[in-house]
Simulated assay, not measured.
Amino acid sequence: MTIAADQGPPIPPLLRPLGRVPYEPTVDAMKAFTAGRGPETPDEIWIVEHPPVFTQGLAGKSEHLLDAGDVPVVQTNRGGQVTYHGPGQVVAYPLVDLRRQGIYVKEFVFRLEDAVLRTLADFDVTGHRVPGAPGIYVKLADPFGHAALGNDRPASDPFQGLGKIAALGVKVSNHCTYHGVALNVAMDLQPFERINPCGYAGLKTVALATLGVVADWATVADVLGRHLGARFTR
């Protein structure tokens, strides 16, 4: 659902490719940017890669972190449960003024997911939404097929036959967003076996590389950044 927004020439968000940066200082920078922005501050999209880290969202439960080992665990203020960030994963942080965009949080999340779906499609992968489980999933047996999931998935296992390729967690402060979405490109997926990803025990995590897609981090980061920019041009 959208709300009234001022009309004018299209203004894309500023895309900032920041490379590999540590998680906690990046979150602090997003908080500072959001706290200091005004009505005319341009929206930005930060594209980053993080060193290995487990992050626990506001609703996070300790039982979903099975074995952190030598990977640091950071409590953070985004929504959702525990997830993992590491090299080979594109993380996008849209810093968006929802009032100026004329949208509510539900639409913001929809557009984030839509950008990921379009990015995957550019690499011939079909992504899917699962109701009630933010993020994007692929069919393990046929990640390149175009058939829809359908509405008859078993309630006891809504992730049957699926792997999660993108995780989503956001924070909204004074109608402005930060945190965002993480898309697995070519990374060590073993740390995901040490958590219940996003709070779902046994949920398999995949990356473009495990699906057989050959694409480097920079290429995927550029494609995702462009799709996100198009979704939030005002």
Results as ranks from 00 to 15, higher is better:
70 D>P: 15
56 Q>Y: 10
80 G>P: 08
60 G>Q: 03
23 Y>F: 14
80 G>S: 06
64 H>W: 00
60 G>I: 06
55 T>Y: 00
55 T>W: 01
29 A>T: 03
69 G>P: 04
26 T>C: 15
62 S>Y: 01
69 G>C: 06
51 P>S: 14
67 D>K: 13
65 L>C: 09
68 A>L: 00
33 F>R: 10
42 P>G: 06
34 T>S: 10
66 L>K: 01
26 T>V: 04
56 Q>E: 06
48 V>F: 07
39 P>R: 15
74 V>E: 12
73 V>P: 11
36 G>W: 04
62 S>N: 11
35 A>Q: 13
50 H>S: 09
56 Q>F: 09
32 A>N: 05
46 W>G: 09
48 V>P: 04
40 E>V: 12
59 A>G: 08
50 H>A: 10
55 T>Q: 04
78 R>G: 08
43 D>T: 06
29 A>L: 02
66 L>Q: 03
62 S>V: 09
55 T>V: 06
28 D>F: 09
28 D>Q: 11
39 P>W: 05
68 A>V: 04
35 A>S: 11
50 H>M: 12
82 V>M: 09
45 I>E: 09
43 D>P: 14
48 V>R: 01
80 G>N: 07
75 Q>C: 05
69 G>Y: 12
61 K>R: 15
73 V>F: 05
40 E>I: 07
82 V>H: 08
82 V>D: 00
57 G>L: 08
49 E>W: 10
74 V>R: 15
63 E>L: 02
59 A>W: 01
52 P>N: 07
64 H>L: 00
69 G>R: 04
54 F>S: 07
31 K>F: 06
46 W>A: 10
80 G>A: 04
65 L>P: 00
63 E>F: 06
76 T>C: 10
73 V>Y: 08
37 R>V: 05
25 P>R: 00
63 E>C: 02
32 A>E: 11
76 T>R: 03
80 G>D: 07
39 P>E: 15
27 V>H: 02
61 K>F: 01
57 G>V: 01
77 N>D: 15
68 A>G: 09
66 L>P: 02
30 M>N: 05
50 H>W: 09
29 A>M: 04
54 F>I: 02
70 D>E: 15
74 V>Y: 06
56 Q>N: 08
58 L>N: 06
41 T>P: 05
76 T>A: 14
62 S>P: 00
58 L>A: 12
66 L>N: 03
72 P>S: 08
80 G>H: 06
78 R>Y: 09
58 L>D: 05
53 V>F: 11
57 G>W: 01
82 V>F: 04
54 F>T: 05
51 P>M: 11
75 Q>G: 07
67 D>I: 03
44 E>K: 03
59 A>S: 12
49 E>L: 12
69 G>N: 05
26 T>Q: 09
25 P>T: 05
45 I>D: 06
33 F>W: 13
53 V>P: 03
